[in-house]
Design a protein around this nucleic acid. Structure first.
Length: 414
RNA sequence: CGGGGCGUGGUGUAACGGCUAACAUGCCUCUUUUGGGAAGAGGUGACUCCGGGUUCGAAUCCCGGCGCCCCGACCA
C-alpha cells in the first residue's frame, strides 16, 4: 500500500485524555480512533494488525478441530432468564435495550446461553459429539469504568470457543489440547516468553480455571510467577492448598503485574442443565452435554503487544502481527530517479506478495523516519541517491535495510 | 459505585475578574531545501463543553448538566 493513500496522519502528541501507553501510541500512529470512553474505531492500519491476530488464532482453533460460526450481538432474553443470568444483579455488565414492541433485549457479553440453545437444534446423539464451535465477535460490556486504552473497553473483539462433549473425560482431554493451543497462539503472537499459564478460580465445576497472563506494568492483575515451571498463580487463589496442589514452594514465587489475555475453563453441565441440552448415549439414555469455554480478546492482545514491545520512539510490532512486513521509504531527489527506482521496487515486492507500505509522500527524510519509527513496521527499506549509488557484491544499486527493533543496518542488492 | 482531577483553534499548552483570547504544532500558498520531525515569508483556524447565575465587566467566581481522565471497588 502507498502511504499517500493512507488517510491517517501521525501526530507528535497524544490527546491529553489518553494516558495509557497503548492508546497514546496507537492514536499517534493512526491505528485507532477513540469514539468515546472505552470504545475505539480500528483504522486501516489497526484493522490490519487486528486481522493478523485474528488469523493466527483462527488457524490454531481450526487445527484444534474448531468450526467457526457467527452468533448475533442482539440476545434473546428468554435463554438468559432460563439460565438465571438475565438479572443485572447476576450479570452487571449488560447493555439492555428495548425492541419496538416493548420487549427487552441485551447486547451480547458472552455466548454460552444462545449457543447452547442453538446446539439443542443439532445435538441429539452421542454420535453428534464432540462439537467445538467458535467465533470472533464484538462483545459489549457496560463496565463501570473503562480504562487502559484498548485493553479494557466497553466494546471489544473476542474469540470465544465453546466445547460440547459427551463425558467429563472427553471434555478434560479437549481442555488440555486447548491449553496447548493457547500456548502456541501466544508464542506465535510474540508474547510467548512473557505469557504465563496461570491458575485461577474454577467456579463450581472444577477446582481451577486457567488464565493466560502476560507480564506488563499496564496489567490489572497481580500474579505469582514460578519462572522455572513456567506457570503462575493468580493472587485471588493463592493459598497453601494451591501451593501443595502444584507442588510449589511460596519462596519460589515472584509477584508480578499482568494482563489476562486469555482464559479457559470447564463449565461442566451448568448451562446444559439449565437450558436442557442433552443427548442420548449408547444405551439410549438421556445425558447432559459437558461444556467448556475458551476466550481470547484480540483487541486486548493488540494493546498488550504495544505495551510489551514499544520503545521511546514508538511501536515495535513482532513480525507475525505487523500491519506490513516492510516499510519502504524513498528519499526522493529532484530528478525523479529515486522515486522511479523506489516505485519499481514497490511494484516488484507487491507482485511477489510481500506486504509493503511504501512511503511515497513528498515530505522530508526526518519526518519519514520519525513516522516510520512510530508506526513500528519491523523492517525498513530505504532507497535514496546514496543507496542507488552504493556497490554491494560488485553490483551498483542497493537498498538500506534497517531493523526497527535492534536498529541494525545492512545493505542489500536491488 | 465511592473518592479525586480536568474541559480554551485539529492537537498540546498559556492568559490577575478588565485591551483584538496568546504560543507551539498542524493545515493552505509561495520561495529555497532534501539521510532523523528543514528554513523564510504570507495565510487559515476558537460563541473558551452546554445551560443558568453573580458582576459595570466572566475563559477565569457560583449552581446545574454533559463529557473525559486517574485511584479504589468491580471484572461471567
Amino acid at each position: 500500500m502507498k502511504q499517500s493513500q493512507l488517510f491517517t496522519k501521525t501526530r507528535r502528541e497524544a490527546p491529553k485524555d489518553e494516558v495509557s501507553q497503548n492508546a497514546q501510541l496507537l492514536i499517534r500512529a493512526g491505528y485507532i480512533h477513540k469514539e468515546m470512553a472505552g470504545v475505539y474505531d480500528f483504522l486501516p492500519l489497526g484493522l490490519r494488525v487486528l486481522n493478523k491476530i485474528v488469523n493466527i488464532i483462527r488457524e490454531e482453533m481450526n487445527a484444534l478441530g474448531g468450526v467457526e460460526l457467527q452468533m448475533s450481538a442482539l440476545q434473546d432474553r428468554t435463554h438468559w432468564e432460563t439460565s438465571g443470568r438475565w438479572d443485572d444483579e447476576v450479570l452487571d455488565v449488560w447493555f439492555k435495550t428495548r425492541l419496538k414492541n416493548g420487549n427487552e433485549t441485551g447486547l451480547g457479553t458472552t455466548h454460552e446461553e444462545p449457543l447452547t440453545a442453538v446446539m439443542k437444534d443439532h445435538i441429539r446423539s452421542f454420535r453428534d459429539l464432540p462439537v467445538y464451535a467458535y467465533q470472533f465477535q464484538t462483545k459489549f460490556r457496560n463496565e463501570v469504568r473503562a480504562k487502559s486504552g484498548i485493553m479494557r473497553g466497553r466494546e471489544f473483539l473476542m474469540k470465544d470457543l465453546y466445547s460440547f462433549c459427551s463425558t467429563k473425560a472427553e471434555q478434560d482431554y479437549f481442555y488440555e489440547k486447548a491449553k496447548a493451543a493457547y500456548v502456541k497462539i501466544f508464542e506465535r503472537l510474540g508474547l510467548g516468553e512473557k505469557t504465563y499459564l496461570t491458575f485461577s478460580s474454577g467456579g463450581s465445576f472444577s477446582k481451577y480455571s486457567h488464565e493466560f497472563q502476560t507480564l506488563t506494568e499496564a496489567g490489572e492483575d497481580t500474579i505469582y510467577v514460578h519462572k522455572a515451571k513456567k506457570l503462575a498463580i493468580n493472587k485471588e487463589v493463592l493459598n497453601e492448598e494451591v501451593l501443595s496442589d502444584l507442588g510449589i514452594k511460596r519462596e519460589d514465587l515472584v509477584e508480578k503485574k499482568a494482563v489476562e489475555v486469555g482464559n479457559i475453563f470447564n463449565l461442566g453441565t451448568r448451562f446444559s442443565d439449565s437450558l436442557g441440552l442433552v443427548y442420548n448415549d449408547e444405551q439410549g439414555k438421556s445425558q447432559p452435554v459437558v461444556m467448556g469455554s475458551y476466550g481470547i480478546g484480540p483487541s486486548r492482545v493488540m494493546g498488550t503487544i504495544v505495551e510489551t514491545f514499544a520503545d521511546e520512539k514508538g511501536i515495535v510490532w513482532p513480525e507475525a502481527v505487523a500491519p506490513f512486513n516492510i516499510h519502504l521509504i524513498g528519499l526522493f531527489n529532484n530528478s525523479g530517479s529515486v522515486r522511479a527506482a523506489a516505485d519499481k521496487i514497490y511494484r516488484d515486492m507487491t507482485s511477489k506478495g510481500v506486504e509493503v507500505l511504501f512511503d511515497d509522500r513528498d515530505v522530508s527524510a526526518g519526518e519519514k523516519f520519525s513516522d516510520s519509527d512510530l508506526i513500528g513496521i519491523p523492517t525498513r527499506y530505504i532507497v535514496s541517491e546514496k543507496t542507488l549509488a552504493a556497490t554491494v557484491d560488485g553490483s551498483i544499486g542497493a537498498i538500506e535495510v534497517k531493523d526497527r527493533k535492534t536498529g541494525k543496518v545492512e545493505m542489500i542488492k536491488i
